[in-house]
Amino acid sequence: MYFENFASLVNMGGHGVYVWPTYGLGLLVILYNIFSPLMARKKIVAQIKRQARAASVPKAPSSRDRTIKSKQQVSTAESSRTMNEGEVE
């Protein structure tokens, strides 16, 4: 270790007042880069859970609003036959 004791380490020949705050700021930036996404993740996970709970409560399927799953069960061949010319009123 270049510095004999703790005091000279902090003082660093008069330059400590520049070096240590710089490293303090560096630490802040590093912590920001780690924790800001993690906090955002926590918020998003909570939202997803809330949506999952809301979706699991069976809501009345509105008539016009056909869900995708039922459309996929209809085989593509059968569905394209009814649709390709469009109904002529």
Binding site: R64, D65, T67, M83, E87
Partner: peptide, 13 residues
Amino acid sequence: VRKVKLDDFAGGF
């Protein structure tokens, strides 16, 4: 004149 009803192709949310 041919008509296409967009509601026939509407998808769900």
